[in-house]
Amino acid sequence: MELGRELRATYAFVERNFNLVRRYLNWEIVFLFYSIINALTIGFIGVTTGPDEVLFLTVGALLWGFLSVLFHEVGESVSWERWEGTIEYTFMAPIRRLTHLGGMCIFAIIYGTIRTTVVLAVVAFFFDISLKEANLFSGLLVLVCSSLAFIGLGLMAAVLPLLSPERGSQATHILQGVILLVSGVYYEVEVLPGWLQNLSVISPATYTLKAARAALLEGQSIAALGPEMLRLVVIGLVLIPLGLFIFNLGENYAMRSGKLKRSG
């Protein structure tokens, strides 16, 4: 059973990564602490301007936290394995690359959801946030739809360390930084200069934030958010195969040039 075999192998990556989280628990606590502090400081900026701003900013911080985990875990998967020295072992395993990267994505979604939930709990405690008006189900569905697009972006970013062991990892941070700048995480995109607003149009995070805020701040229903969610799904359905295609090209290049082995 080819499919069963690949699904079992997908689970190998999820299990392995949760084992790594457990073994690097001190790091995890530090990262989580930093995420909480980051969300709280941004929330406190909102306190100075008004309660609506608190919710606007904390939703931005929480969503960005989730999307960056997703992007980071997928985008840094090659760099991480190269650092550990296991990249050749993983790449010569008898599995499809889709299985390998799919496993990384599933882990990233579960891990990102757990982390975001913890941060949300602390933030809600500090700011006495009321979610009476929020449509949580719509918000959750927006998150699921946007995950597809961010996985696609992550796959494209993951190829960079294959192309350049020394500089690829830094390049993924640049990409992540640009998305943060142009997507309206902490401000409306309208405040950006015109030329940067053009970039916000092609960032899936722009639509994610817009739809999630509409669900959580205004309680908009799934039907009302349908067009935004559809747009996110379409972006995801384009970006995932494109990301896989680019990753395969990068893998073939690394296998021709011998860059798989180098520790950058």
């Binding site: 079992r8 392995r16 790594l20 550990e84 020295g85 296991t86 072992y89 008898p94």
Partner: peptide
């Protein structure tokens, strides 16, 4: 070079390999 996740135990590394090779 021993290509392992060094923070993981031998058991965890072997189980990872087993799942990859079905």
């Amino acid at each position: 070079e021993a290509a392992f996740f060094k923070k993981l135990s031998s058991y965890e590394n072997l189980m990872y390999a087993a799942r990859l090779y079905d």
